[in-house]
Simulated scan of single mutants.
Amino acid sequence: MIRTILATALLALMNTITPALSQDVDCDNAETQFDMNHCSGLEFKEADNALNEAWSSARAAMKSIDKNNQEFEPDEPSAADNLLKAQRAWIDYRNGQCAAEAAQYAGGSIQPLIRNTCLAGMTKKRTDELQQMIVDR
């Protein structure tokens, strides 16, 4: 019971302190490992948000293609289903790849930076791929 109360109090304190610290970080001039880790997390979050937007557009485009292709391949998996299958596989690949890259830094303060940088880079590439699918149609 006491552990639960202490853990809850610690979590509440961390939630109050972390945003305050985050506001003081200049990501263009990050110097400490904490700041670099924090900024790389923000970069990944931004990349992930862009990916989600591109995903919505690509998924809608595939559904539109499916509508037009109903008469040609009625027994085949739809473009939207294939895209979903590919996206799920890609997420699993990205997460595994970045975990593998970061594993060599286990226990080190740089590990979050390595992982986040990998996640952001791969996510940006995937966003470009999804956007290209929309442009090419």
Rank of each mutant, 00 (worst) to 15 (best):
M1P: 14
I2L: 12
I2W: 10
L11A: 15
M14Q: 11
I17F: 07
I17Y: 06
I17R: 07
A20C: 07
A20H: 10
S22C: 07
S22E: 14
D24W: 09
V25H: 03
V25C: 02
V25F: 03
D26R: 01
N29V: 02
A30K: 01
T32M: 06
Q33M: 14
F34Q: 02
F34W: 12
M36S: 08
H38Y: 11
S40D: 05
G41N: 00
E46W: 02
E46H: 04
A47M: 03
D48S: 05
D48A: 06
A54M: 02
S56N: 12
A61K: 14
K63A: 08
K63C: 06
S64I: 07
I65K: 14
D66I: 08
E73D: 11
E73H: 08
D75H: 09
E76D: 15
P77Y: 02
S78K: 15
A79H: 14
A80K: 02
D81Y: 10
D81N: 04
N82D: 11
K85R: 13
K85T: 14
A86H: 11
Q87D: 00
Q87G: 01
Q87V: 03
A89W: 08
D92E: 02
D92G: 08
R94F: 00
Q97P: 07
C98M: 02
A100S: 11
A100Y: 08
A102E: 06
Q104K: 07
Q104Y: 09
Y105L: 01
A106N: 06
A106Q: 13
G108K: 06
I110W: 00
I110H: 07
I110T: 03
N116P: 04
L119I: 01
L119K: 02
G121P: 03
M122L: 15
T123R: 02
K124R: 15
R126Y: 03
R126C: 01
T127I: 00
D128R: 06
V135M: 07
D136W: 09
